[in-house]
Amino acid sequence: MIFLKNKPTGLDQLTDQQLVRAILGETDPKKQLLAQEELYGRYAEKVYFKCLGLVKDSDTAKDLTHDILVKMFLSLSKYRGEGAFRGWLFSMVYNHCINFLKKQKRLQPEDLEELDLPDEEIEAEHKYLLELRLLQLEQLIGQLTDTERLVLLLRYQEGLSVKQMAGAMGIGESAVKMRLKRSRDRLAELFKKLEK
């Protein structure tokens, strides 16, 4: 495979939707490859680092990124251009990584208890998490379990709602709330230990 480097194509001026249409509508294989490369350049790194954040292993993240990007190119025709392309792609990333973690049995089994927890993310004992800083978080994130890290990243880094998380993880909303609460509890507990 030979990549055409630094050739001005004007593809970088296109929006994601226009670029997807260009890839799907292009009959010339060379031009189609250029458009695919442009899309790859926009998202490959983001996908890789998302995978790395979720699975914490560079070789696994590389394999997952490969599979996700191939899947993305093969299912471009399913993207209808209704929402943002990045949202469509990133939901593919979450689903793929969550399925991987489930297959590896790295996610805790679904909670059987269906507690009706409020959406608010406050527990009195967590107030001092307001003191948590990036350096400390970087230390603590590695000590969390896969499930704890996953739910906190999806909620606070990716900004997914409880409903979106439930959809991506294939569990109920109350189970998501419960996992979020337990993950915050654990983060707070680790932070307390670190501060002592």
């Binding site: 490859l33 695919q36 790859y40 191939v70 990036l134 978080l137 994130i141």
Partner: peptide, 20 residues
């Protein structure tokens, strides 16, 4: 705080070739 978290390291260079 979470949005400032950046995983360490670089993306493997061979990935593009593998995908295409």
């Amino acid at each position: 705080q979470f949005q400032q978290l950046r995983p360490q390291g670089e993306m493997p260079g061979s990935l593009k070739k593998n995908v295409f």
